[in-house]
Design a protein around this nucleic acid. Structure first.
Lengths: 121, 121
DNA sequence: GCTTGACCTGGAGCAACTCCAGGCTGGTAG
DNA sequence: CTACCAGCCTGGAGTTGCTCCAGGTCAAGC
């Protein structure tokens, strides 16, 4: 699979894919006889997973640690488990913040309610 | 109020406060006879509000538009209302994504469950 | 008079992309 | 055969939103 299709399939932009390869977030991507990238099913699966992780704001440092652990082929999954667990906790916290902010906005919006002009915000 | 106290009160870091002033996100901050910043109650209120908005990832461009509208003293709150409404919709969407990612992580974590070693992830 | 702490400015550095210029390749159209 | 075009390549600059740092000022305490 070529890069544009990989982009559509995984949800990562073409530029992001090249960037992730450059910084070692992906296993080295194979090349065709034309020197262009060819993505394997494994590559695609891994990139899709990366997209999930980054969409929730996992820092690249953590993603890279995860990547290294996965690609090392080690049996020891405890590091990965910890990274995911930490991220899970972070998400829960972020959801709380987000909900608090939604409530704040609800309040703000009621103050700014249309038609009835209030004087201050 | 001086900058360090303002930082503690609003939740914005000292550097962020100076940065926000520089890019015009704050009304010009008054200075004492020593040339140092003195924050008024209004400044503090506005900065606290900014902190809410940014914590939920409102882009600076939107925050600045909001700031300009507020500090222009205009009676027309429709622009502010729209910015908040747009952001509110964005937050709802983000919460959905976040929940989807939490479910994904729940699944992943069960795969990586400790004690029982699985072989792939 | 000297030191300490809080503050100042301008500018560099950083994360995580995103965009761009300039160049190669493979396929089709004339 | 040549021209052209889409899609890919690389290296590097630009962007956003901070964050950190060097080097300097000023007021207060010892």
């Amino acid at each position: 699979m070529r890069i544009s299709e990989a982009s559509k399939t995984t949800g990562l932009s073409v530029d992001t894919i090249r960037y992730y390869e450059k910084i070692g977030m992906l296993a080295p991507i194979g090349r065709g006889p034309d020197g262009q990238r060819r993505f394997s099913a494994d590559d695609i699966e891994w990139m899709t997973q990366l997209n999930w992780l980054r969409q929730t704001g996992m820092p690249q440092a953590d993603m890279r640690a995860f990547a290294v652990s996965v690609h090392s082929g080690t049996q020891d999954t405890s590091e990965r488990y910890e990274i995911l667990l930490r991220h899970h906790a972070l998400l829960a916290q972020r959801r709380c913040e987000l909900e608090a902010c939604e409530r704040y906005l609800d309040h703000k919006l009621s103050v700014y309610a249309p038609k009835q002009e209030k004087k201050h915000g």
